[in-house]
Amino acid sequence: MNIELKVNGSLMRADVDDDTPLLWVLRDTLKLKGTKYGCGIGQCGACTVIADGEATRSCSLAATAAVGIEITTIEGLSPDGGQFVQAAWQDHRVPQCGYCQSGMIMAVTALLSKTLFPTDDEIDREITNICRCGTYDRIRAAIHAAANNRS
C-alpha cells in the first residue's frame, strides 16, 4: 500500500506491505541508511529514531503505523555533526566501529529533550541500547557533557 511518512520534516511516499517495519522503509525505500539493523526485535536499539518526541525502535513499528507521526532519523539532526549530542560524541571520541551510535545518539537526544540533567541511574534506565565495542564509559560521559553544554 502507498503511504506518506513525515521524516526529518519532509513528506515522503513509500509503497510498502502492511507489516513492513519502519526500519526497512527508512533504509531501503527512503535510502536513509544511518538508521541501522541489529536485531529486528527491539532489543539492541541500533534502529532508534525519534517518533513524536519519543525514542522508538523502528524495527518494531510498522511503517503503516508511523503515518501521521513526526519521525526524526540521525540524518535529521545535523549533517555536519554539529547538533549538541553529536558534538559531545566527537569531543569524547565515543565511536569505535560506530554502528550502534546513530541509535545511541537518537536515544540520548530524546532523553535530553525531556530530562535536562539525567542522573546516572536515569541514563541506565533510559539508554538500553547495545554497543558491542564497549564505548559505554564514554557514552555516559558524553551524555553528561551534552546536557551541560547544550546551547
Binding site: 539532526l77 549533517p79 555533526g81 553529536q86 566527537q90 565511536p95 551510535q101 545518539i105
Partner: peptide, 8 residues
Amino acid sequence: DLTPKTTG
C-alpha cells in the same frame, strides 16, 4: 572517521 560515525 569520527564525524561520519556520528552523523550516520
